[in-house]
């Protein structure tokens, strides 16, 4: 009875009642969630690569410890999201196969290289900052497991942004070379961070449907604007500049105007032609392949233990 089921589903969405895994849901809602949530999970996992690049070269023990903790968190975020996506009837293996086959997307931002230590600061401030903008409203997503995973993630994200900003702040108060390094990182990460919010609203039909189903709560452009407004103020503390001469307070809109994003670049990166797309996928596939023996050994060990407990149970009649 899809008509009646549809009615119940629509009423739940309308009344802000969360949809749970065993509830009936339209096939397109399920498809959209699987796509969005698995992309999100992949982004957390691939997102570890550009930062992992700097763990061994972090300038102090404190920086090394915090960077490891941050990257660990991102692994955790990936796991929360893979588990939440699995409740929709896809396995983690299938999702990972899709990623490795190049069929699944992840955030375009992780296809840019981390050239200097300052990039780790810029990633924390801008990339995690943009992610937080996106993720906070997702804590109210209509799909229960997604919303719950996002609540957990958001609690952990604010440390990520603060540690990044602290890195930049330290550099911004350092030598001329350190200041230059700080500004250079901001210059390179600013525009790709704005692209993280996705295409403009009029070019994003998916986003409209996602808002209709209350998965997303704000449009791409609304979130991007919030992010710009916040960063324009924050960059002053760093005494640095955002690389956009068109940023200007707009009295009527009560928001900052900003320049046009290079959408051509955005679509090229999405298509797989960014500076690091190939490297990232290769690194993921290599890590997965090199971990195969661990998975095998653990499975073999578990099977062996299972056998010996069975033997014990059937051999003696002492189980209570």
């Amino acid at each position: 009875m899809p008509a009646r089921e549809q009615e119940i589903f629509d009423r739940k969405i309308e009344e802000e009642i969360r949809i749970e895994p065993k509830d009936w849901m339209p096939a397109d809602y399920r498809r959209m969630l699987i796509r969005q949530m698995s992309q999100h999970a992949h982004s957390e996992i691939v997102g570890m690569l550009p930062e992992g690049n700097w763990i061994t070269r972090a300038p102090s023990l404190r920086r090394k410890a915090t960077l490891i903790a941050k990257v660990q968190d991102e692994a955790g975020h990936g796991l929360y999201l893979y588990s939440a996506t699995e409740t929709l009837g896809i396995t983690r293996d299938e999702m990972i196969e899709q990623l490795h086959a190049g069929m699944a997307k992840y955030s375009s931002i992780f296809n840019y290289p981390t050239l200097t230590w300052a990039d780790i600061g810029a990633i924390g401030w801008l990339v995690d900052g943009a992610a937080i903008m996106n993720q906070v409203p997702l804590c109210r997503a209509s799909y229960g497991p997604y919303a719950r995973a996002m609540i957990r993630i958001c609690k952990e994200e604010s440390f990520h942004q603060r540690q990044g900003f602290e890195i930049l702040l330290t550099l911004s108060r350092g030598s001329e070379a350190q200041k230059a390094m700080c500004q250079d990182a901001i210059n390179r990460w600013w525009w790709p961070s704005l692209m993280m919010f996705g295409p403009n609203d009029d070019a994003s039909p998916n986003s409209r449907l996602s808002m209709h189903w209350k998965i997303k709560r704000f449009s791409n452009d609304e979130l991007r604007q919030k992010f710009v407004d916040a960063c324009v103020d924050q960059v002053k503390t760093l005494n640095m500049l955002l690389p956009d001469s068109e940023i200007k307070w707009n009295e009527n809109r009560e928001h900052y105007d900003f320049g046009e994003i290079n959408w051509e670049e955005f679509y090229e990166v999405i298509k797989g032609n960014g500076p690091c797309n190939r490297d990232r996928l290769e690194a993921r596939k290599k890590a997965h392949a090199e971990g195969a023996w661990v998975r095998e050994a653990a499975a073999a060990f578990a099977a062996k233990k299972n056998d010996s407990t069975k033997h014990l149970m059937y051999g003696s009649h002492t189980t209570s």
Binding site: Q72, G76, L79, Y80, S83, A84, E86, R92, R148, A149, R152, R295, A298, A299, F301, A302, K305, N306
Partner: peptide, 18 residues
């Protein structure tokens, strides 16, 4: 939440980490 693990011991250790 949930997670994958080969056995109970690994599940507990992974749960601690996650």
């Amino acid at each position: 939440g949930s997670l994958h693990a080969a056995d109970a011991q690994m599940a507990i250790e992974n749960a601690r980490d996650v």
